[in-house]
C-alpha cells in the first residue's frame, strides 16, 4: 500500500493531527508516534477500542484518547 496519512483526533484536547506513514502501522507504533504510552492511552476506531497489535492503515481515521483523571483526588 502506498504511503499516506492517518488522521487522528487527539482527546481530550480535541486537536486534529495527521501522521504520515509508509505502510499500515500497529497501534503500539501509532501511540509511540503520538508520544503516548499504551498504558495510558487508547486508540478507538469507529467506536471500538483497538488492541496494541491491531493495525491502522493510511487513509483511516481514529481517535487517540489520553486517559486521565480530572484533578487531585486524595
Amino acid at each position: 500500500m502506498a504511503r499516506g496519512l492517518i488522521k487522528a483526533k487527539m482527546l481530550p484536547e480535541g486537536k486534529e493531527v495527521e501522521f504520515e506513514v509508509e505502510k499500515p502501522v500497529k497501534v503500539s507504533d501509532l501511540l509511540k508516534m503520538a508520544g503516548l504510552s499504551s498504558e495510558t492511552a487508547v486508540v478507538i476506531r469507529d467506536g471500538t477500542p483497538l488492541l496494541e497489535t491491531d493495525v491502522v492503515k493510511p487513509g483511516e481515521r481514529v481517535e487517540i484518547v489520553r486517559v486521565l483523571s480530572g484533578g487531585a483526588k486524595v
Binding site: 481530550p12 486521565l68 484533578g71 487531585a72
Partner: peptide, 9 residues
C-alpha cells in the same frame, strides 16, 4: 462521564 482535565491541574 466528563473526560477533561480541571483547569487548575
Amino acid at each position: 462521564f466528563l473526560h477533561e482535565e480541571c483547569p487548575f491541574v
